[in-house]
């Protein structure tokens, strides 16, 4: 089982890539996806996350094939 992980904006630049594919087991949470994808990189305080293009919490569990996106606070408008 795996999930597709995306990074945006300043986070993408600091990580140095725009996406990853991460292997998961049952009951893997978003917080664990962050650790697996970034090799335990410190999680920025104001980091936001979306699962399948909807805002999610770090304790949400993910499913096989989900798209998980991490990004900094938004600044549109």
């Amino acid at each position: 089982m795996s999930v597709h992980v995306k990074y945006f904006a300043s986070l993408r630049e600091s990580i140095g890539r725009s996406h990853d594919d991460v292997l998961i087991t049952n009951n893997t949470t978003v917080a664990e996806i962050w650790m697996l994808a970034t090799q335990n990189m410190h999680r920025p305080d104001r980091l936001l996350v979306a699962v399948n293009q909807e805002y999610a919490d770090f304790n949400n569990e993910v499913c096989d094939g989900d798209e998980v996106a991490f990004f900094p606070p938004v600044t549109g408008g």
Partner: peptide, 14 residues
């Protein structure tokens, strides 16, 4: 609409 967009819509300015 504009206040929601400002805090939630995924856009980033550089």
């Amino acid at each position: 609409v504009i206040e929601d967009l400002k805090v939630k819509a995924p856009f980033w300015k550089k």
